[in-house]
Amino acid sequence: MKDEMWMRTWTDGHPHFSEDLHRGIMWLFTPLRHLGQWITQPGASGALTRRKAR
């Protein structure tokens, strides 16, 4: 009986859980994506090679 109640609760709450999980993952990875875009800018690679040359 407890298993059935747990499964019904899981099934009812799963869409909400999935939305929260997706929102949390996007909150974590969005700044990293912007950092990756900044690093791959044309001027950024030149700045890194100049630092290595010094």
Results as ranks from 00 to 15, higher is better:
2 K>A: 03
35 L>Q: 03
49 T>E: 11
40 T>D: 04
46 G>R: 02
9 T>R: 08
9 T>Q: 09
7 M>Q: 09
22 H>Q: 05
2 K>N: 02
3 D>A: 02
7 M>V: 13
3 D>E: 14
13 G>N: 12
35 L>T: 08
10 W>F: 14
6 W>A: 13
36 G>R: 03
29 F>V: 01
26 M>Y: 03
9 T>F: 14
24 G>A: 05
39 I>P: 03
30 T>V: 06
39 I>L: 11
19 E>Y: 15
12 D>A: 15
31 P>E: 04
36 G>A: 08
32 L>Y: 07
31 P>V: 03
6 W>Y: 15
44 A>Y: 00
37 Q>V: 14
53 A>D: 05
27 W>E: 12
16 H>C: 07
40 T>G: 00
46 G>Q: 07
39 I>T: 04
10 W>H: 07
10 W>G: 04
27 W>N: 02
35 L>W: 10
46 G>D: 04
11 T>G: 09
22 H>R: 08
8 R>E: 08
52 K>S: 09
42 P>F: 04
8 R>S: 05
36 G>V: 07
20 D>W: 15
35 L>K: 08
6 W>H: 14
54 R>K: 10
12 D>V: 11
4 E>S: 06
5 M>G: 07
52 K>M: 06
48 L>H: 00
47 A>L: 01
35 L>M: 02
8 R>M: 01
29 F>T: 04
10 W>L: 08
23 R>W: 06
35 L>C: 10
20 D>N: 15
28 L>I: 05
40 T>F: 12
46 G>V: 00
11 T>V: 03
30 T>H: 01
16 H>L: 11
48 L>F: 00
